[in-house]
Amino acid sequence: MNFLEAKTYLFEKLAPSKIMALASSVNDYVMVRNVSCLIYNDAIYFKTDKNFRKTKQLYKNPRVALCYSGIQVEGKAEILGLVIDEPGHQFEKLYQKYLWGSYNAYSHKEDEILVRVEPVFVEIWDTDEKNQAFQTFIDFEKESVEYCQYDDKK
Results as ranks from 00 to 15, higher is better:
residue 126 D to K: 07
residue 101 G to K: 09
residue 121 F to V: 00
residue 128 D to K: 02
residue 124 I to E: 00
residue 113 I to F: 05
residue 102 S to R: 02
residue 108 H to W: 11
residue 127 T to Q: 12
residue 113 I to W: 03
residue 101 G to I: 04
residue 113 I to Q: 00
residue 122 V to N: 02
residue 107 S to V: 10
residue 121 F to A: 05
residue 116 R to K: 15
residue 106 Y to M: 06
residue 110 E to A: 09
residue 101 G to S: 09
residue 112 E to S: 03
residue 122 V to A: 05
residue 101 G to C: 02
residue 117 V to W: 08
residue 99 L to S: 06
residue 103 Y to H: 12
residue 126 D to C: 05
residue 104 N to Y: 15
residue 124 I to T: 00
residue 110 E to M: 07
residue 102 S to A: 11
residue 119 P to A: 12
residue 128 D to H: 02
residue 124 I to H: 01
residue 101 G to N: 10
residue 129 E to G: 00
residue 122 V to Y: 05
residue 127 T to G: 00
residue 105 A to Y: 10
residue 122 V to I: 10
residue 117 V to G: 02
residue 112 E to T: 00
residue 105 A to H: 07
residue 107 S to C: 11
residue 110 E to R: 06
residue 114 L to W: 04
residue 121 F to W: 11
residue 105 A to N: 12
residue 103 Y to N: 06
residue 113 I to Y: 01
residue 116 R to G: 07
residue 112 E to D: 12
residue 100 W to N: 12
residue 117 V to I: 15
residue 101 G to F: 08
residue 99 L to F: 08
residue 107 S to I: 09
residue 102 S to E: 14
residue 127 T to H: 10
residue 115 V to T: 05
residue 123 E to I: 14
residue 114 L to R: 01
residue 121 F to R: 14
residue 114 L to Y: 03
residue 122 V to G: 00
residue 125 W to F: 12
residue 125 W to K: 11
residue 100 W to R: 12
residue 126 D to V: 08
residue 121 F to S: 02
residue 116 R to Y: 08
residue 123 E to Y: 06
residue 117 V to A: 07
residue 114 L to V: 04
residue 116 R to T: 07
residue 102 S to F: 10
residue 119 P to S: 11
residue 111 D to N: 15
residue 129 E to F: 13
residue 106 Y to W: 11
residue 104 N to P: 01
residue 108 H to S: 07
residue 100 W to M: 14
residue 126 D to I: 10
residue 106 Y to P: 01
residue 118 E to A: 15
residue 120 V to K: 11
residue 108 H to G: 04
residue 116 R to N: 05
residue 124 I to C: 04
residue 127 T to P: 00
residue 125 W to S: 09
residue 111 D to F: 15
residue 118 E to I: 15
residue 127 T to F: 09
residue 107 S to H: 13
residue 127 T to D: 01
residue 125 W to A: 08
residue 123 E to R: 13
residue 100 W to S: 13
residue 116 R to V: 09
residue 116 R to M: 13
residue 110 E to V: 07
residue 109 K to L: 13
residue 112 E to V: 01
residue 104 N to C: 09
residue 121 F to G: 01
residue 116 R to D: 04
residue 103 Y to R: 06
residue 106 Y to V: 05
residue 109 K to G: 10
residue 118 E to V: 15
residue 114 L to G: 03
residue 122 V to L: 05
residue 121 F to C: 01
residue 101 G to R: 10
residue 112 E to C: 03
residue 109 K to Q: 08
residue 104 N to Q: 13
residue 109 K to T: 12
residue 105 A to V: 06
residue 113 I to A: 05
residue 122 V to P: 01
residue 116 R to Q: 13
residue 111 D to R: 15
residue 109 K to C: 09
residue 108 H to L: 09
residue 129 E to C: 04
residue 122 V to Q: 01
residue 120 V to T: 13
residue 105 A to C: 08
residue 110 E to S: 09
residue 128 D to I: 03
residue 110 E to L: 07
residue 110 E to Y: 03
residue 99 L to H: 07
residue 105 A to T: 10
residue 103 Y to F: 14
residue 123 E to P: 00
residue 117 V to T: 04
residue 129 E to Y: 10
residue 102 S to Y: 12
residue 99 L to W: 08
residue 100 W to V: 11
residue 108 H to V: 08
residue 99 L to Y: 06
residue 114 L to K: 03
residue 105 A to P: 01
residue 102 S to K: 04
residue 113 I to E: 03
residue 120 V to L: 14
residue 115 V to L: 02
residue 124 I to R: 08
residue 100 W to F: 15
residue 124 I to V: 09
residue 112 E to A: 06
